[in-house]
C-alpha cells in the first residue's frame, strides 16, 4: 500500500531560542492500518498530532499528504475534508445535540449529502451510540458517548486519515475497548488511524507503534 501520510525530516520547536521538541522525524503512514504514537510526557506526542492535523506548522521538514506537502494545502480545507481529528477532551459544541455536532462537521466540510441528518444518524449508530442519545444535548452524554460523537464527527466527511489524541484517556476500560473496536473497524474499512497514546493497551491494538523518545529526538 502507498503512504497516505509521510513525515520528511520533520522538526518543530515552539520558539526560536528553544530546543526542538521534534527533531528529524521520518515516519510514514499507510491506509488501513492503526498507528500508535507513544512516548513519555513531554516527548512531543500531542505536538506531533497538532502538526499532522494542520493545527501547527512545522519549523522545518515536510508533511506529505498523499504525496503533497500539506503546507501547500489550505489548512482549513485539510482539517475539514482530508483528516478527521478526535481530541482527548472531545471538543464538541455543548449547545448542539450529537446529531447537530456531526451535521455541523458535514456543513463545514462542504460535503454534498442529500440527507445530512440521516447520514449523521447512521454515523452515530456506527459508533454504537444508542438511538435515544442521538438527539440529546452533548452535556447530557457520558464521556464514552461524547467520544463516540467525536469519532462520528471526525468521520462525517469520510476522511482517509483519523487522528486521535488520547481517545481513551478519559474513558473506563470497558469503553476503551469499545472505542478501540471502532478504530479497528475503521482501519478495516481502509482508513489510516493514528492514535497518540501512552496507554499500553491501546498501543497493543495498533499495527505499527512509533515511539517518541525525548532525548533522541531533540
Amino acid at each position: 500500500m502507498e503512504n497516505i501520510l509521510e513525515l520528511c525530516n520533520l522538526k518543530y520547536r515552539y520558539k526560536k531560542d528553544l530546543p526542538y521538541v521534534l527533531n528529524d522525524l521520518n515516519f510514514s503512514f499507510e491506509e488501513g492500518k492503526i498507528y500508535a504514537i507513544v512516548g513519555k510526557s513531554g516527548a512531543g506526542k500531542t505536538t506531533l498530532l497538532s502538526l499532522l492535523s494542520g493545527l501547527a506548522k512545522p519549523t522545518d521538514g515536510k508533511i506529505l499528504f498523499d504525496g503533497k506537502d500539506i503546507s501547500k494545502i489550505d489548512r482549513y480545507k485539510y482539517r475539514s475534508n482530508l483528516v478527521g481529528v478526535i481530541f482527548q477532551s472531545f471538543n464538541l459544541l455543548p449547545y448542539l445535540t450529537a446529531t447537530e455536532n456531526v451535521m455541523l462537521s458535514i456543513d463545514i466540510s462542504g460535503t454534498k449529502i442529500k440527507n445530512k441528518r440521516q447520514h449523521a444518524t447512521e454515523l452515530l449508530k456506527k459508533v454504537q451510540l444508542e438511538d435515544e442519545d442521538i438527539n440529546r444535548g452533548i452535556l447530557k452524554l457520558s464521556g464514552g458517548q461524547q467520544q463516540r460523537v467525536a469519532i462520528a464527527r471526525a468521520l462525517a466527511y469520510d476522511p482517509k486519515i483519523i487522528l486521535a489524541d488520547e481517545p481513551t484517556g478519559n474513558l473506563d476500560t470497558e469503553t476503551q475497548k469499545e472505542i478501540m473496536e471502532i478504530f479497528k473497524t475503521l482501519a478495516r474499512e481502509g482508513k489510516c488511524v493514528i492514535i497518540v497514546t501512552h496507554s499500553p493497551d491501546v498501543s497493543k491494538e495498533a499495527d505499527v507503534v512509533y515511539e517518541l523518545k525525548p532525548n533522541k529526538n531533540k
Binding site: 493545527l55 475539514s80 475534508n81 471538543n91 459544541l93 463545514i108 464527527r153
Partner: peptide, 12 residues
C-alpha cells in the same frame, strides 16, 4: 472555546 472548536474542525 467555541471559536477554538469551530476553527479546529476546519471552519475558517
Amino acid at each position: 472555546y467555541e471559536i477554538g472548536v469551530l476553527t479546529a474542525i476546519g471552519m475558517k
